[in-house]
Design a protein around this nucleic acid. Structure first.
Length: 287
DNA sequence: CTAAGGCCCTGAGGGC
DNA sequence: TGCCCTCAGGGCCTTA
């Protein structure tokens, strides 16, 4: 489940190979991988072939590779199971390969950037870049809030936004228009660390509690990033196909029925927004 | 504007 | 062995 740390690992892995690479060929095996590209596969290919990647950027769970001498970028969202893999040109097709981008790099030679995706919630697109303060972002990312490791993230505005809402704090954390990059795993982990029950209404939290939660979010994300992200079911891997290690460090997520590492109470798992919440009913008291 | 719920999709795994 | 059911969940969409 790629959230901010996993997408950042992919972005950082892609950067050295992609930046400066000339796109020599693009193959779309499955058009469902282009749901974010409205004008179809032929247009997608035409807008990439012959171009050169000039960067590797990310906001929240979106990543994009700006194209040289242009106002556009290849954007990617991995959804639940999307992978961006670096392969040699002669490598056999991946099991769920959807799109292949053949490139040529001055130092690394010929490479293939492969987009594979089992559950097809992820997709690629070529999108125009627009100004956003000091930076430029794809039009499809304009509505996405800055993520908590973005230097321009506005802590004060976040605290106000949370305290204005009556929704459950977990739902607020999953709203990419309030704070981006946090998904189900890191929402549960951050709430556990801050000792906040996931159903607590945002408006009932003190400014101090929200600030503490934000600090815990940053701590959890940084630790996960340092460990290469969370790999649960072999869906998330880095550009070389390797798993991350953070699954071993989880305190709440996926640990329903097991003792809370902090107080020994049993972690509860319950349905929430068509997914699951994991929390300790003993040290994350409902208010 | 906020809030709440549903849908898209595939493969793994459990039960019988 | 095989069939059926449930589950995983990010982003977007609809409805109130």
């Amino acid at each position: 489940m790629p959230e901010l740390p996993e997408v950042e690992v992919v972005r950082a892995g892609l950067a050295p190979a992609a930046i400066g690479s000339l796109i020599t060929a693009v193959t779309v095996w499955d058009e469902r991988a282009l749901t974010r590209h409205a004008s179809g596969a032929a247009d997608f290919v035409a807008r990439l072939e012959g171009r050169t990647f000039a960067g590797a950027e990310r906001r929240g769970k979106f990543l994009w590779l700006p194209l040289a001498s242009g106002e556009d970028a290849l954007i990617a969202h991995l959804g639940m199971s999307g992978q961006m893999l670096l392969r040699t040109p002669d490598a056999p097709a991946e099991r769920h390969e959807r799109i292949r981008i053949d490139v040529e790099h001055a130092h690394h030679g010929e490479l293939a950037i492969v987009f594979a995706d089992q559950r097809t919630f992820g997709s690629l697109a070529v999108d125009d870049l627009v100004a956003d303060g000091p930076s430029r972002i794809p039009t499809q990312v304009v509505h996405i809030a800055r993520d908590p490791i973005d230097p321009f993230f506005d802590d004060r505005a976040f605290v106000l936004a949370v305290r204005r809402r009556n929704s459950a704090i977990k739902r607020i954390l999953l709203d990419q228009q309030v704070i981006s990059g946090v998904g189900n795993i890191y929402a549960d982990e951050s709430l556990w660390a801050a000792r906040i029950h996931p159903e607590t209404a945002g408006r009932t939290l003190s400014a101090q509690a929200v600030a503490r939660l934000l600090a815990e979010i940053r701590t959890v994300l940084a630790k996960a990033l340092a460990e290469g992200g969370t790999s649960f079911d072999a869906q998330y891997v880095n550009v070389n196909g390797q798993a991350g290690y953070f699954a071993h460090s989880l305190n709440a997520y996926g640990r329903g029925g097991q003792p809370c590492p902090r107080c020994g109470g049993l972690i509860r798992r319950e349905a929430f927004m068509n997914r699951s919440s994991h929390y300790c009913p003993r040290c994350q008291r409902r208010r």
